[in-house]
Simulated assay, not measured.
Amino acid sequence: MTAAEATSSPLRELVSKDQWALPSATVNRTLQDGLKAFVERVRQPNWLQDQPAGGQDELQPLSRRQLERWAPEPQWRSNLSGFVDALDHWCTRWSAIQPVGFVVAPPFTGLAESLEQVAADRDWRLIAPPDLDRIHRGQALQDWWSQFEGDTPWVLPELGHCWLRTPAGLTLVRHLLGAIAAGELGRGLVGCNSWSWTFWTHLLPELRFSTLTLQALDHQRLGQWLQGLAGTGQFRLTTNGSWVVPPKDEPARNGARTSAFLRDLAAWSRGIPEVAWAIWRDSLRARPEAEVEEPPDAEPTQSTCWVIPWSQVSVPTMPPGESRPLAFVLHALLLHQGLDETSLQQTTGLAPDDVHIALHSLHRAELIGPHPRGWFVTPRGYPAVRRYLHAEGFAVDGF
C-alpha cells in the first residue's frame, strides 16, 4: 500500500477475510523474533527481574498526564462513518439470503464498542448476554430469546459472551446459529472475537455465513492513527533523532531518516490497534537520552515526544517451564473474552487451587489482568500468549 492509499483508506476498514492482510516485519525483526522464540523454549529467561536492565533507568517514561496528551485511550464509538458504510454495503449485497451480518475480529480491536454505538445511533435493539451460570446449567432462557422479538433490527456485540466450553454451555449458541440460518430472527448484526469464531467453525465445519473483519493496521495506517490520537506534535527516536511518525510534508522532514519502529510495532502487534497502542505508550519518553538534543529546525509551536528503539522495548513473556494449566486458562479466557474463577474451573476442568495458582502466575507476568468479566489477557501480553498457545498445539485464530 502506498502512502497516498494509506491516507485515503479508513482506519476502521471492514473487509472480507480473504482481503485481510498481516503487516510485514523487517527482515532483521523476523530473524530476531525467531531466534528469541527458540531461545525461550530451550532455556528459562531472566524472568521478573526486580530491577530494570542497565541503562533503562536513564530514560524517563511519560507521566499519566503526558500519556493522556500523547497517547490517550482509543475511542471506538466515534468516527464510524467508514465502518457503517461497509456494513450498509454488506447488507445491500447479502441481506436477501443472510439477513444477519457477522463481524469477526481479534481481541483489542474495539469491535463490540463500535457495534454498540451502531445500535445506539440507529435505535436498534442491543442484545444483552445471558448470565454465565444459566448458560452453564443449560437453562431454556426464554427471557433472553424474547429480546429478538419484533421487527426492529438487533445487535449482539460479542458472541463469545453467550456460551461456555462445557457440554451444556454450547447449547445456546448452537440454537442461535441454527435460528439465524433458518431466518427466524429477522435482521441483525453479530460481533464475534476471532478465537470464539475459530472454535465454532471447527465444531461446525458446515458453518458458511458470510463475514466481515477489521483490516489489520499496517505501519503507515498505524502511524496515521497514533499521530491522530496525539494531535499536534512529533515523534522521534531517542538514539539518533530519526522520525518515528514522519511528517506528511516532505520539506518538514528536513532530510532526516525514518525509523523502522512502526513497521516492527505493526508486525509484532499483528496490526491490532490496542495491542500496538499499549506497547507504544510504554515506548514513549519525556526527553531523549543525554546525547540527543531537540533539533534546532523544529517548529517552536510543536513539541517532540521521544520513542525508544524497538530493541529496547520490553514486552511480557511466558513464565519459564511447561504448564498445561496455564495454557488451558489462557485459551479459555480468549475464547470467552474474559472469565471469572468459577467459570474457568467449569471450562478448563481444573481444580480451584490450580486455577488460582495459574491466575497468580499469569498476573505476575503481566499477561493477564482484572477485567469486568473477571480476568482477561492484557493487550501487551497478547502476542506472547498467542505465540505460546500456537506452540502448544492449540487452535489459534486466523488473525
Rank of each mutant, 00 (worst) to 15 (best):
A3P: 05
E5A: 15
S9H: 08
G54P: 03
G55T: 11
Q56N: 04
S63Q: 09
S63I: 09
E68S: 12
R69C: 05
R69V: 11
A71M: 04
E73L: 11
Q75G: 01
W76D: 01
R77F: 00
F83E: 00
R93Y: 09
A96T: 12
V100M: 04
T109C: 11
A112I: 05
Q117V: 09
A120D: 11
R125Y: 01
D131R: 12
D133M: 14
R134Q: 13
D143T: 14
H161S: 02
C162G: 01
A179H: 10
E184S: 12
L185S: 07
T198E: 15
H202K: 10
L204P: 00
R208F: 02
L214E: 01
D218A: 03
Q224G: 04
W225E: 07
L226R: 00
Q234I: 13
L237H: 12
P246Q: 10
K248V: 15
D249C: 10
D249F: 12
G255V: 10
F261Y: 12
F261T: 01
D264F: 00
S269T: 01
R281W: 01
R285Y: 07
E291L: 15
E291G: 05
D297Q: 13
A298Y: 05
T304M: 13
M318A: 11
E322M: 08
L326Y: 08
V329Q: 04
H336D: 07
Q337F: 03
D340R: 06
E341V: 07
A351C: 06
L359V: 13
P370E: 11
P379Y: 04
G381M: 04
Y382K: 00
H390M: 08
E392P: 04
V396D: 09
